[in-house]
Amino acid sequence: MALSSGSSTDHDSREKITIQNVSRSYESVQALADVSFSVAEGEFCCVVGPSGCGKTTLLRAIAGLDDPDGGSILVGGDPVTGPGLDRGMVFQEYALFPWRTVRGNIRFGLDRPACDCPDCEARVRELIDLVGLEGFEDAYPKALSGGMKQRVGIARALAVDPEILLMDEPFGSVDTRTRDRLHAELLDIWTQTGQTVVFVTHDIDEAVTLADRVIVVDADPGTVQSTFSIDLARPRERTARDFVGHVARIRTELGRPDDTSH
């Protein structure tokens, strides 16, 4: 049967992200309280928790977009001091530049600082191919569906070849069928690129479908409640007994019989 453990204190030698006693509060709300965990290199890690548990804050802190009040975040052993090209971010509401075409959006990161890849055009073509957007190169975001927009968002983040991919409920606004396909595609990409992924979601099914490890965060104040290793072979069948077992355990841990609220 599957493994699960209380809190993770085991130190991996290939530790990519180390979060130590991180706290963050906004006015009177304690978004994160003494959060510690680590993510191994090449690991697919999902952070699950109810809305308002500070999981987005945590992701933004790793990205360098938010400055925690206390504790430290190390990426590859170095403290995070701001955003960097080693950490790509995929946003819940896509955050595409509406005035740029699909090609222009994907190319954005390659142009700063002035293109130092030998053939940027080829790189962009390769990415468009990777996320399956052939034929939409010159479309503007307004003409794309939610699923397609997020494909652009993923390709744009991958363009600069970050070591870490940070994903903030990236499939929260797409329909179920598209989401299933995007899950499969994301896992394909991850297998090909071997990046370290931190994926935030409130959907337990999604977390168990994707992750090597699920970190359950509790709300008010945001703390790491427990972590679960999901050692099921991929692709995972959602009706399989083991799968259902993991989902049930995490749901029990979250203390909510039915967590489908946003």
């Binding site: 933004r60 990205a63 360098g64 977009l65 701001g82 955003p83 090209l85 950490r87 790509g88 971010m89 946003f91 509401e93 955050a95 595409l96 530049f97 509406p98 005035w99 740029r100 954005f108 990161g109 700063r112 600082p113 744009r156 983040a157 600069v160």
Partner: peptide, 30 residues
């Protein structure tokens, strides 16, 4: 200008204020 767009730009390597103005704020305000 949406802070999400400036966030996206800074994760994609836009560091200086002037670059942000040129690459994000100006086209967004156009």
């Amino acid at each position: 200008v949406s802070s999400e767009l400036t966030d996206a730009a800074s994760t994609l390597g836009v560091e200086r204020d002037l670059s942000m103005l040129k690459l994000v704020a100006l086209p967004s305000a156009a």
